[in-house]
């Protein structure tokens, strides 16, 4: 796994140049190419009852995006980065997917995205839709407050959530590829309260030991690669405990894996990574399953 090319999706309402600059720490992990994507929503220019398709409006919106991307690109050129840009008309998720495939990017950076109520009812939010459909890691990056403040280096202190699934291994590989950009990794596994409750005290202690052992093994792998890694075993609701862990250890980003699920299955059984991507105040990096 490598991170040399990044897709930065901006609608200029939620991710600006400062957010992009805060990710430049990834250069230490091999990042050398940034591709900008701006999607002009079709509704802004098409299907107008009185006027049909607004070609002039499209031209204007393209021009605005173009000017901004040129400005951003100049900043990146100065740092020796390669830059590309796409300004397209359509729906955000499919356009992100097609540009990701065309450009062969290693990481997608986007803001949290909502949909209309009717669409969310059957397809979930755009964020969930993207996470479900892409095989590339996605960094859901939001400003920490209304004032639009971003952390200086979101990759500095990671909270790595592991559930011992296949996707967990992929997440670990991805974190290893971030060597150089990351200072500390807090590894967390959350045991379900319900599962523990069914066990005798002895069995519960045994289970606890097993998980601690696995956490220590992961810790060792990271330490060998010169990461400052620390294991944590929590008990309770996974989403809540991950958020609690993130707060306690003052991490700058949460990193999770996600399994491949159909939209209906996901809506029925839920997904920790998708739920956290929807609500976490911290940036969250979701590494999806390898196949979809």
């Amino acid at each position: 796994m490598k991170i040399s090319k990044m897709l930065f999706v901006s609608e200029f309402e939620e991710l600006w140049l400062d957010a992009l600059q805060s990710l430049m720490g990834l250069r230490k992990a091999g990042l050398n190419h940034v591709v900008f994507l701006h999607v002009i929503h079709r509704e802004k220019v098409a299907m107008k009852r009185g006027t049909g398709y607004l070609k002039q409006e499209e031209r204007k919106l393209r021009e605005i995006a173009d000017i901004r991307f040129i400005d951003w690109a100049e900043t990146l050129f100065e740092e020796g980065m390669e830059v590309g840009a796409h300004i397209v008309i359509g729906n955000t998720v499919p356009k992100i997917l097609s540009v990701t495939e065309d450009e062969g990017v290693d990481l997608i950076v986007t803001a949290r995205r909502k949909r209309g109520k009717l669409e969310e009812l059957y397809a979930g939010s755009e964020t969930s839709d993207l996470l479900r459909r892409t095989v590339k890691p996605v960094l859901i990056y939001n400003y920490l407050s209304q004032s639009g403040k971003v952390g200086e280096n979101p990759f500095e202190r990671l909270l790595l959530g592991l559930d011992w699934s296949v996707s967990s291994e992929r997440v670990l590989d991805y974190v290893l590829a971030l060597k150089g950009a990351v200072k500390r990794v807090d590894i967390i596994h959350v045991l379900s309260e319900k599962a523990i409750g069914k066990l005798s005290k002895k069995e519960a202690q045994k289970l606890e030991r097993e998980h601690k052992k696995r956490l220590n093994e992961v810790c060792d792998v990271l330490t060998q690669e010169r990461f400052d890694a620390r294991p944590h075993l929590y008990i309770g609701n996974t989403e809540e405990q991950i958020e609690k862990g993130a707060s306690e250890h003052r991490v700058t980003m949460i990193v999770l894996g996600t399994r491949s699920k159909s939209v209906w299955k996901e809506r029925w059984s839920g997904s920790v990574s998708h739920a956290l991507a929807e609500r976490s105040e911290l940036p969250i990096l979701v590494v999806p399953a390898e196949t979809k």
């Binding site: 509704e43 009852r49 359509g90 998720v93 499919p94 009717l118 669409e119 059957y122 397809a123 839709d129």
Partner: peptide
Amino acid sequence: GILSLVFTASQIREDNEFTWFPIKE
């Protein structure tokens, strides 16, 4: 309508450039 939403791949609606706006209007 619900069955159509459940069984139709989102890719098809996207290729149709399907949006809810006209029906909402």
